[in-house]
Amino acid sequence: MTGIMSLLATAKINSLDPAKWLFDSLKKLPTWMNSRLDELLPLRNG
């Protein structure tokens, strides 16, 4: 739970809507390549 809260806080700090970022990331996750998971982090999307 702490990890998810940290990611949501990071999204907010980077001027992203945490709910939208989480929804978009979870939607992409099933087909996303493991080697590119870091691209889904909120620091990369800001």
Rank of each mutant, 00 (worst) to 15 (best):
E39G: 11
T2K: 15
K27R: 13
L37P: 00
D17W: 00
R44Y: 11
S6D: 13
E39H: 05
A9P: 00
T10L: 08
L8P: 00
G3H: 12
N14Q: 08
L29P: 00
L43W: 09
K12Q: 15
A19M: 09
N45V: 14
T31F: 02
D38A: 12
N34L: 11
L43N: 15
T2L: 12
N14Y: 03
I4M: 10
L40N: 01
T10R: 05
S25E: 04
S6V: 12
L7W: 02
W32M: 05
K27L: 13
L7K: 08
L8V: 03
L7V: 06
R44H: 13
F23W: 06
S15D: 12
M5G: 15
L8C: 09
S15P: 00
L41R: 04
D38K: 12
L7G: 07
L8A: 09
S15R: 14
A19K: 07
L41P: 00
K28I: 06
W32K: 10
L37Y: 05
P30D: 02
I13R: 12
W32G: 01
M1I: 02
N45P: 03
L8W: 00
L41H: 04
T2R: 15
S15C: 04
T2A: 14
W21A: 04
R36D: 15
P30M: 08
S35A: 13
T10A: 07
M5C: 13
M33I: 00
S6N: 15
K20H: 05
F23T: 14
S25D: 03
I13L: 14
L29M: 14
M1E: 11
R36E: 15
T2P: 11
L22G: 00
L40E: 01
S15M: 08
E39R: 05
L37V: 07
N14R: 12
G46Y: 08
T10S: 10
L29W: 02
K20F: 07
A19Y: 06
A11G: 06
N34F: 10
K27W: 14
M33T: 04
R44A: 15
S6E: 12
P18I: 06
P42H: 06
L16A: 05
T2N: 14
D17A: 04
T31K: 09
G3E: 15
L8F: 05
S6K: 10
W32C: 03
P30G: 01
P42V: 02
P18W: 03
R44T: 09
F23G: 03
K20A: 04
L26C: 14
N34S: 06
I4P: 00
